[in-house]
Lab assay of single mutants.
Amino acid sequence: ETKSLTLVLHRDSGSLGFNIIGGRPSVDNHDGSSSEGIFVSKIVDSGPAAKEGGLQIHDRIIEVNGRDLSRATHDQAVEAFKTAKEPIVVQVLRR
């Protein structure tokens, strides 16, 4: 079962304390579909994302501050987090 969660993150020394993997390839599949998503791959101990109620590894990131990342490329997702103003509201899907 997958549930949708909304989390609020604040940077600590400029970092949110997690890494992402995935992202849509720069070239779409011929039918326009994509199974890619942006997923949390690593969480830094005691970083902002590790706090209670924070992110978990394998969370799929859907949205950052209202910006849809469900079909974003990896670079677009990285840029969305880099430029996001605080508080950073992150919507994820968690299995």
Rank of each mutant, 00 (worst) to 15 (best):
R11H: 04
L5D: 00
V44L: 14
G14P: 05
K42E: 15
H10K: 15
K85R: 09
D31V: 10
I21Y: 10
E36C: 08
R71W: 06
D45K: 13
F81L: 15
G37F: 02
P87H: 02
V90G: 00
L5S: 03
D28K: 10
H58K: 08
G17W: 03
H30K: 12
E52G: 11
H58Y: 11
S15G: 10
D59L: 00
G32L: 11
G17A: 03
S15V: 07
E86D: 13
R24M: 11
H58G: 14
V44N: 13
I61V: 06
I43M: 05
V78F: 04
P25Y: 06
K42L: 05
F18G: 02
L9T: 03
Q91M: 05
G23V: 06
I61R: 00
G14E: 06
E36A: 08
R94Q: 02
N65W: 01
Q76H: 12
L55A: 01
G66E: 02
V27R: 13
S15W: 06
T2G: 08
V89P: 02
N65T: 00
G66I: 01
R71K: 13
H10A: 10
T6D: 01
I38T: 03
R95A: 08
I62N: 01
I62C: 06
D31T: 10
D45G: 12
A49M: 07
G37Y: 02
D28V: 12
P25K: 14
S35V: 10
L9K: 03
K3E: 05
V27L: 12
N65D: 05
K51E: 09
S15L: 07
A72D: 03
A50F: 07
H30E: 14
E36M: 10
H58W: 07
A84V: 07
K3I: 15
S33E: 13
R71F: 12
S33A: 14
S4R: 13
G14F: 07
I21F: 06
E52Q: 10
R71G: 09
I61T: 01
V27T: 14
S70L: 09
L5V: 14
H58F: 09
E63S: 14
I20M: 12
S34V: 11
S70D: 04
I38C: 04
G54T: 11
N65K: 00
A84R: 01
G23N: 10
S4N: 11
D45C: 07
D28T: 12
A84I: 03
N65L: 00
S46F: 09
V92S: 01
K85N: 12
V27Y: 11
T73V: 02
D28M: 09
K51D: 08
S34H: 13
I62R: 02
E1K: 13
A49W: 06
F18Q: 01
A84P: 01
D45F: 05
H58L: 07
R67L: 13
A84G: 02
T6P: 03
R11G: 04
L55M: 06
S70T: 12
I21S: 14
S35Q: 09
N19E: 15
R67F: 13
T6V: 07
S35M: 11
K51W: 07
P25V: 09
L7K: 04
S4G: 05
N19S: 15
G32T: 11
G17L: 02
V44H: 14
H30L: 14
L69S: 00
L7W: 03
G54K: 13
S34P: 15
G22C: 13
G17M: 05
E63N: 14
R60Y: 01
E63K: 14
V8D: 03
